[in-house]
Simulated assay, not measured.
Amino acid sequence: METPEHAWHYTTAHGLLEIVRRHRIWATSAAYMNDRNEIREGRDAIRRALEKRRPQLEDWQLKQLAEIGIDSDPTPISVFLLSAALDGDSLTLWRSYGAGGEAEYAIDFDPIVSMWPVVQNEAEQHPEPPPGYYEDAREEVETGHFAQLYDPDAASVLASGWGKVEYLGDTSRVVEDELQEIIDGLKKPHEDSFYVMFSDYQQGLDPTVFFKQPGFSDENEVRSTWRVEPWWRFVLYRVGRFGIAPYVEVSAKRGTQPLHLWRGITQDEVGLLPIRSVRIGPTRGEDDAEVTLRALLDAHGYGHVEILRSSTPYR
């Protein structure tokens, strides 16, 4: 997956203030996005492509594809998504974020710099484990003797990095190309063992999180996505348009110490966000607005960040 040159995140004045002051930005569950088919669209397209290819594949390939989860239903609620755009002065997005009458801004994040979910609870064990929480992680191997299958309290993060959204038109080959890349990454196991090796999935999330319905193509979206386990360590909740929405806070790591990527970052490790510039939205380009924004950025460690103005004559 090619890293995009820009990741412009459009937000309101309130959103910008919280991002700069707290050095964090929200990634919301994909189940609560404006696109009600978020994540499902891409997975369904891959499954349709697989059905066409199925007669040409060997049994071991089909078995490994099933193990990967190609045939399973997607789970949008478990994918946390941060949206941005390649275009930093988009009339479509200014209209979307300026609808409430609040000043709007676009933040240019450096796509090369990784951001990771912030750990919200550093307790050793779940503070209020629900019924069956630990029992589900154990298996009875013989009468009265149990084996621990996994640690349900161990922190685990999968991250995609920034990637460009692919809009799935009727003639798009991106789905077939993605499926072929997955198939090419499979390795035939020995007769006495079974293992799965696959290029995209081994490093992060299901790549179909970057597929979207073509009706949203005017947004020219780029996105970064995460999965986190267990939820009680990472996930927060807020009231949104579609009910109570789960989200995670993401940030960049402070300092140069090695990062255990699979664990997220602690509160003490939160550093400055990789912000390159901030653009003031249309009709908000008065000199006073720029002076105030400069003072805000300087006060919170972002003195290097460039301030730009929109050239869109929208009001």
Rank of each mutant, 00 (worst) to 15 (best):
1 M>S: 15
3 T>V: 15
4 P>E: 04
6 H>D: 12
10 Y>K: 08
11 T>V: 01
14 H>E: 14
20 V>K: 05
22 R>K: 15
25 I>Y: 06
25 I>M: 14
27 A>Y: 10
30 A>R: 01
35 D>F: 02
39 I>G: 05
51 E>Q: 15
61 Q>K: 06
61 Q>G: 06
61 Q>N: 05
64 Q>F: 06
76 P>D: 05
78 S>C: 10
82 L>W: 09
91 L>S: 11
95 R>D: 00
100 G>L: 07
101 G>C: 04
103 A>M: 12
105 Y>S: 05
108 D>E: 09
116 W>V: 12
117 P>N: 02
119 V>S: 03
124 E>R: 09
124 E>M: 11
135 E>G: 15
135 E>Q: 13
137 A>E: 02
146 F>G: 06
159 A>R: 03
163 G>N: 03
166 E>W: 13
171 T>N: 15
176 E>Q: 10
178 E>R: 07
180 Q>I: 07
199 S>Q: 12
200 D>C: 14
204 G>D: 00
208 T>D: 10
217 S>Q: 13
222 V>Q: 03
222 V>T: 08
223 R>G: 07
224 S>V: 10
224 S>M: 11
228 V>N: 00
228 V>M: 00
233 R>Q: 02
241 R>W: 09
245 A>F: 00
248 V>C: 01
255 G>Y: 00
265 I>Q: 03
270 V>W: 06
270 V>C: 06
287 D>W: 13
287 D>R: 07
289 A>Q: 08
291 V>M: 13
295 A>Y: 14
299 A>H: 12
305 V>F: 07
308 L>P: 12
313 P>R: 01
315 R>D: 01
